[in-house]
Computed example of a mutant assay.
Amino acid sequence: MQARVIRNHDLIRVPWKNGGGTTAEVAAFPEGATFETFGWRVSMADVASDGPFSLFPGIDRTLIVVEGDGIELDVEGIAYTLDSASPKLSFSGDDITTGHLLSGPIRDLNVMTRCGRFRHRTRFVESGVALLAEETTVAFLVPLDGPFDVTLDSTIHSLEALDTLMLDAMQELILLSGTGRAVLIELMPDHS
């Protein structure tokens, strides 16, 4: 089992697909894939103004607000408020989506998987023990509120808020110690 720490301060910002902002890729498969060729992609975006989201045909998306007061997403005419009480929304990259900031800029965590190749699930975890789903091939842990220590095979990986720990598939228990919440992302093949 392999684990790799990806530091938030090392992420490289690139323009959004529609040119309306910037995103920092945490990881993508295959490595070096473009917006049109990735099987899955995990990224963080800084949203500083209202506007349309890029279309990603054939992609399932989950967006999680990780900093800031929140955003209202209009997805095909239906409004969803993402804030500290309800920070997560899953939707199709085919859907026409626009964002309206609630009060100032936000940072969000994006998980995208190409339909027919991969699927994903996200959940919030706190200190304790986590176990990945059997079909998970790769997972990511992103602390939101403060430092987290992740113990794997007696090795401790120390993370600051918004750092990422990338894990190869495993069925061992993951020991988590930290303050506040973290996001656990699991990626698996799509056999549908």
Rank of each mutant, 00 (worst) to 15 (best):
T155P: 00
D46M: 02
T113L: 03
R181I: 02
G104V: 04
L63D: 09
A33S: 15
P147V: 02
R13F: 03
P30H: 04
T22S: 13
L184D: 11
D69Y: 03
N8A: 15
L184I: 08
E67P: 04
G39Q: 11
G20L: 11
Q171A: 05
I78G: 00
N110S: 05
Y80D: 05
E72G: 10
A3W: 06
T137C: 14
D83I: 02
M188V: 00
L82N: 08
Y80A: 03
L55A: 14
L173Q: 14
L101Y: 06
F148L: 15
L175G: 07
A28H: 02
I78D: 08
H191C: 06
D10T: 14
L173C: 09
A48D: 10
L82D: 10
E172Y: 01
V47A: 13
H9I: 06
S90L: 05
G32C: 07
P105N: 08
A85C: 02
T23P: 02
Q171N: 14
D46Y: 00
M188E: 13
K17M: 05
S49H: 12
N8R: 15
H157M: 07
F124I: 01
Q171V: 02
A27N: 05
E67R: 15
S86R: 07
E135M: 10
G58M: 08
D83L: 03
S86W: 00
E160Q: 14
S43W: 07
I96W: 10
S154H: 09
L109M: 12
H100A: 09
R13L: 05
L109F: 15
R117C: 02
L176G: 03
I59V: 15
M44N: 09
L176D: 06
D108R: 00
